[in-house]
Design a protein around this nucleic acid. Structure first.
Lengths: 181, 181
DNA sequence: CTTACTGTACCGTCTGGACGGTATTGTCAA
DNA sequence: TTGACAATACCGTCCAGACGGTACAGTAAG
């Protein structure tokens, strides 16, 4: 899983994300992506015949990796499908602490056309429904969900306005509440 | 205050916001803005000598109008500087229910260059500090702040994934918690 | 023979911005 | 009062460059 020279497709995707982070979400050009990925422009267009397809893939990739991480987190603990809310909270908390430019690709997609975020909307609604079916107190769930959404948006916009202790206070509060449900 | 034909500057700003909402945050062009504002391109560039200035103004405008609304809300109630958290919550709640494309301008600015959001970051940190100085329970404040941030980001991305009752549950929970502080 | 590209040349369109002009209004000395 | 000038608030055109995408010939590996 670690030793594995990346396919052109992967190289292009990560190059695109990184580049979006550098040049700004709305200034992502195919030429630049190809260059950064170490691929000719023809090669890029072979993998992604249009810019829209590339941006779609960027979003899909983002969603996929989050889903995988969530699954892994749930598996790591004894997850009896009961406390997957805590898994969600803790995973999100951890993600908010490290930097991960893969989200920049999502912003690039948004910049081109907000409709590219539709899969994200569906994914989140689905996640919320699953969480809802596993908890008793919906109000508390909503609060937890929205807090994380807030944290995530700050990360997305690179707005590090919260001190570590402030963030931790909110998180431990959430975890405590989640335990009593 | 209501009867008042708008200056070119205002026309341009609202045209830009509306247009950003239509064509997508990253596809805002000066030509299109000028046309929609009923102004020649030369006229636009007279008011905003560069695209960057226009985007800056868009962000400033957004912040200013929110600040004004917050002040008005605080004044409306007897606000003895104590419960300005509730004012903040209620104002944000109300804003999340109506559609207000002025935020699209902020996204356009983000698309061009994330640094344009620096004033937003400063504003929010300042707001949080003020709130902090007026409440006793910091953990609860953080939760409230982040929930609203989450709500706001959903609005920004036009992701209406929450049902009205779900949103209301979170909001009434917040208001109840804010009362006991 | 197919897959997965490379490399280069090119096209049509759009973009930010520079620039030169113009109509209106204001200022002020003679 | 008038004539000279200047500042304000635009208009309309033009341009060099960047962009997404096409086309196509070549090639190395399996």
């Amino acid at each position: 899983m670690s030793g594995h020279r990346p396919s052109s497709r992967e190289k292009i995707l990560t190059a695109a994300s990184e580049l979006a982070d550098i040049v700004g979400p709305g200034n992502l050009s195919l030429d630049a992506v190809a260059q950064r990925a170490g691929v000719s422009k023809g090669g890029l267009l072979y993998n992604f015949p249009t810019k829209a397809k590339l941006l779609q893939a960027l979003v899909q990739d983002y969603l996929k990796s989050f889903e995988d991480a969530l699954e892994a987190e749930a598996a790591k603990r004894g997850d009896t499908t009961k406390n997957s809310l805590t898994a969600y909270i803790e995973l999100s908390a951890r993600e908010c602490e490290q930097k991960q430019p893969s989200a920049a690709g999502v912003l690039a997609a948004l910049a081109e056309d907000p409709d590219f975020l539709n899969p994200v909307r569906d994914f989140k609604r689905q996640l919320l429904d699953r969480l809802k079916s596993e908890t008793t107190d919906t109000a508390k769930l909503m609060v937890a969900f929205l807090v994380i959404e807030g944290l995530r948006s700050m990360k997305l916009f690179d707005m590090d306005i919260l001190h570590d202790d402030e963030r931790n206070m909110a998180l431990t509060y959430l975890l405590a509440e989640a335990a009593t449900s």
